[in-house]
Amino acid sequence: MTAVTASKTSGTVEDLRSPRAAAWKNAAEVKLPLQPTPLDAQPSAYVQKAWANRERGNVPSVAVRALSVGDQLVLRLEWAAPDPRRLINDNDVYADACAVIFPSNGKDAELSTMGSPERPVTTWYWRAGAPGPFLATATGLGTVSRAAKHGLQATGEWQAGFWNVVIAGPAKSTRIGVAVWSGVSGERAGLKSHTPAWHDLKVG
C-alpha cells in the first residue's frame, strides 16, 4: 500500500495555503486509487434503492502531497473534476468536496464503517463554496459529528479540470484515508469515492 510521506519544511502554514505555492513543487506526490463506497453499507434503504442504478464513485484517484510544519500536517489533494460544482445554489445541486480521515487514536480504526464507538475516526472535510473546513469525528456510518472549533485551514482552487485543495491541521497519526465527492454526480453523505483501506502516513 502506497505510503503518504510528509517531509518537514520550514516556514509557516500560511506559505503553503495556496495550492500553487512554490514549496508544493518539491513535495513528493503519491497517487492513491479510489473506489466507490459499497452501496449495501449505506444506512438508509432509500439511498440503497435510489442509487442502485446510478453512476457514483467514479473519481479514479487522488494525488496527494504532504508537508509538515511544526505540529501541523499540510496536505494538498488534487483530483479530476471536469464539470465542477463550486457552490450549492439549488435544491438539486451538490458541491464537490473532499475529506481526509485518520484513526482518532492515531493508530487504527475500522475505515469501512467510519470507526466504531471504541475506536472513532477523525476527519477533515472541505466542501466547495462552504465558509470553511470542518473537523469531525465519527463512531460508525451516519454518525459524523462536527466540532464547533476546528483549528483547520483550507483553500480550494479549481483550474483546467482539476480541484486542488490544501488542508492543514494538527495531526498525530500513522495512517490516513481520503474521500472525494463528485457534485455533478449528486454525491453526498456516504456516496463518494474513497480509499478502501488505510495508507501509512509518515511525518518526517
Partner: peptide, 11 residues
C-alpha cells in the same frame, strides 16, 4: 414496502 426513488425539483 420498497422505497420509491424520488427527486427534489429545482427551486
Amino acid at each position: 414496502g420498497e422505497p420509491i426513488p424520488g427527486d427534489f425539483p429545482g427551486k
